[in-house]
Design a binder for these strands. Structure first.
Lengths: 228, 228
DNA sequence: GCATTGTATACTGTATACAGAAAATGACAC
DNA sequence: GTGTCATTTTCTGTATACAGTATACAATGC
């Protein structure tokens, strides 16, 4: 009998124009292709993408809810700036929330889940040895996300995701120098989870994120990257 | 010299149709006038308010971002349900975040600010003695908000506000029996802030919210109110 | 009876068109 | 040069109209 878990075709949501615009503009903002403070005129964008203003407006409003875009009193849209203070706040909130969620995940994780997380981590160890930073970053995301998925705290997870998304993608810049350290921290978290030590896992996660944040700040401080 | 912090007139944005609809629908959902699960058809609502579908759509999308409204795969909107689990998660996040923000506020608060907060609290004490629950609730909101305003943590504050708004307005139901207790908790927080004890203030705030949450849960558990 | 296919309906997404408000421009007086 | 006022431009918000897709239901074949 074939595995009942996987259907041959995954259900797919039609991707609307608005969705397409949202994703592309988000990417452009986060990557820095559009500079902070730059004005976003609906008609211009619509023309550039060959659509009408309506889906552009929808996308802009969603970006506004994400905090990536602002509007002035008149309603004119522009890209939000992101400075060192924003970076600090984002990381301190991530520390708080991701620690909290991991503690909740602890009780929910099955042995099966833990095995999968450990496998992910072993793959990361491999990527680290290969010096494959790109693969490492991707796996790292999957690791964190899988962990939070298990916690069954939808609001917290949504907030965490929005914190991730609100920040320029700086992680790849510093992760290169931190792969070994990062992996060690992950193993500390996993060990606590395996032992059923929720508070220990939360503590390890907070430390993990704090360390990553400090590395980033230092990098930014020394002019390694510019924010928005 | 008057306090330079407060401008005499707050900048005001023209209230668009969308804003109006957003506020009214939010109110209707939070108050329970529209039941959880109920379908929200754009054209119906537009007809009821005498507008076209566009501002209705805008308002629905914003409510969706707030988590008050959901859409299925087809795009049909309906009111999100809010159960005991949601209540628990909301309160545990409030505990976490509001504690965090208070700790940050501690360093920022001027003597002037503290005086104002204490005055607010004295007004609440008065409302309590008068048995004026309505005034108490209003002052209580101002107290918390003023405190968080001082922290200068815009992201955290936004998240806290969205947690407040995502919940049916249950506070007034339980506050009546808790005014004295609540005031005492507030004074504990204020005392810690006055002493510059950030961690103590955070701890007191967490305890304050945890207590309020427990009271609510108990009330809900005994069938005192229905959620959505 | 049941399964399958056609057809109407009920929604939303998007395009186009218009209205209105703020900002930019330019003419003019001093 | 500087300030004031009228005019144009620029930009968004909203209305209307159309297109497309998923559901419900009736019609058809077996």
């Amino acid at each position: 009998m074939p595995s009942p878990k996987k259907t041959p075709f995954a259900p797919v949501r039609r991707r609307s124009m608005e969705e397409e615009l949202y994703l592309q503009m988000r990417e452009a903002i986060l990557s820095g292709d559009i500079a902070g403070g730059e004005r976003l005129v609906q008609e211009d964008i619509a023309g550039r993408f060959g659509t009408s203003r309506i889906p552009v407006r929808d996308a802009l409003r969603r970006l506004e809810a994400d905090g990536l875009v602002e509007t002035d009193a008149r309603g004119v849209y522009s890209v939000s700036r992101f400075g060192v203070e924003d970076l600090k706040e984002t990381y301190s909130l991530r520390e708080l929330l991701e620690g909290h969620v991991v503690a909740h995940a602890c009780a929910q994780l099955s042995d099966q889940d833990l095995n999968e997380l450990e496998q992910l981590q072993r793959d990361m160890d491999q990527a680290q040895q290969d010096g494959d930073a790109e693969a490492y970053v991707a796996l790292n995301q999957r690791f964190h996300r899988a962990l939070y998925d298990a916690a069954n705290q939808p609001r917290a997870q949504k907030i965490i995701m929005s914190l991730w998304l609100g920040m320029p993608p700086l992680t790849p810049i510093t992760i290169e120098n931190r792969m070994a350290e990062s992996s060690q921290e992950h193993w500390t978290i996993l060990k606590a989870l395996r032992a059923g030590d929720a508070e220990g896992a939360a503590h390890a996660m907070r430390a993990h994120i704090a360390t990553a944040g400090r590395a980033l700040l230092e990098h930014v401080g020394t002019g390694g990257v510019s924010l928005r």
